[in-house]
C-alpha cells in the first residue's frame, strides 16, 4: 500500500543472523497519523522489524526512513537523540521497579527536557491522570500496581515526551478480557487525543479481534515478509489462506 504521508518507509529490508534470514526484501510503508497493526505468528520477524524501526538493529541490506530520516545515515549519538521521537509501551510495561509510578513517568522528562523539578512533577501527574491513574497511586512502586495499572503508567511514560510515533509491543498479551478492553480503549483514546499533531501508532499484536476494531490498517508478517496489508475493514475479508487461517483460529 502507498500513502501520501509516511511515518515509516521501509525499502528492500533484509536482515540475516548467520545463515538465518529473518526479514526478506521487505517493503512496507506506515502512514502518518494512523493506527497500523502488524500481525503475525511467533517467530515471523515482528520484533526484529520493530527493532529496525527504532534503529536498535542495523539492516543487512535495504533502508528505513522514519519521519523522513534515513536511519542508516545517523550515527549512534544522533540515533539516540532521534529515538526521543518514539514512545513505546512494552508487553509487560517495563517500568523501572525501583521508581514510583510518578518517577517512572518523570524519568524521560528528567533526562531530556529542560523543565524544572516542579514542572516535571506537575506534568507527570497530569500524564498519569490522563491515563486514569488516581493521585493516590502516584507514589506506588510498580510491584504495588495491578497489570492494567502498570500498562497505564507505561503508556503515560511513553507519552511523556509527546512522541511522533508510539509503538505498542503486544499490549494485551497476558491480560484478562476486561483489562484487554481497557487497554484497547486507552490506545484509541490516546491516539484520538494526539490526532491534532498526527501521532502515529504502531501495534505489534496477536489479538486479531481487537486489532480489527482499533486499527486503521493491518499488515500480516509471515516468514520475514508482509504477505497482506489492507485497511482494517478489508483485512477481515482477506482471501489469503494464511491470513484466513490466522483470523479464524
Amino acid at each position: 500500500m502507498q500513502f501520501e504521508n509516511n511515518a515509516v518507509s521501509i525499502q528492500n529490508l533484509t536482515k540475516t543472523f548467520g545463515d538465518h534470514t529473518v526479514l526478506k526484501e521487505l517493503n512496507f510503508d506506515i502512514p502518518k497519523g494512523k493506527i497500523t497493526t502488524i500481525l503475525g505468528f511467533s517467530g515471523a520477524g515482528k520484533s526484529t522489524l520493530l527493532k529496525h524501526i527504532l534503529g536498535l538493529t542495523k539492516p543487512t541490506s535495504g533502508s528505513i526512513h522514519v519521519l523522513g530520516n534515513d536511519l542508516s545515515k545517523l550515527d549512534e549519538v544522533e540515533l539516540r537523540g532521534f529515538r526521543q521521537n518514539f514512545g513505546m509501551l512494552f508487553q509487560y510495561a517495563a517500568l523501572f521497579d525501583s521508581l514510583s509510578a510518578l518517577e517512572n513517568v518523570a524519568f524521560p522528562l528528567r533526562e531530556f527536557s529542560k523543565l524544572s523539578k516542579e514542572e516535571i512533577t506537575e506534568r507527570s501527574a497530569q500524564l498519569l491522570e490522563s491515563v486514569g491513574i488516581q493521585k493516590i497511586s502516584h507514589k506506588n512502586l510498580p510491584s504495588e500496581l495491578s497489570g492494567g495499572m502498570r500498562k497505564r503508567v507505561g503508556l503515560a511514560r511513553a507519552l511523556a515526551l509527546s512522541p511522533d510515533i508510539i509503538l505498542y509491543d503486544e499490549p494485551t498479551t497476558g491480560l484478562d478480557p476486561i483489562t484487554t478492553k481497557m487497554v484497547n480503549d486507552l490506545i484509541v483514546e490516546t491516539h484520538e487525543k494526539n490526532s491534532n499533531r498526527e501521532m502515529t501508532s504502531i501495534i505489534i499484536s496477536h489479538d486479531v479481534k481487537a486489532t480489527l476494531k482499533i486499527s486503521d490498517f493491518v499488515a500480516f508478517l509471515d516468514r520475514g515478509n508482509i504477505i497482506e496489508y489492507l485497511p482494517a475493514k478489508e483485512f477481515a475479508n482477506s482471501t489469503n489462506e494464511l491470513v484466513e487461517q490466522f483470523i479464524n483460529l
Partner: peptide, 10 residues
C-alpha cells in the same frame, strides 16, 4: 525489558 526501555528512550 527495563534495559530495552532505556535504549528505546535513547
Amino acid at each position: 525489558e527495563q534495559v530495552d526501555a532505556l535504549e528505546v528512550m535513547g
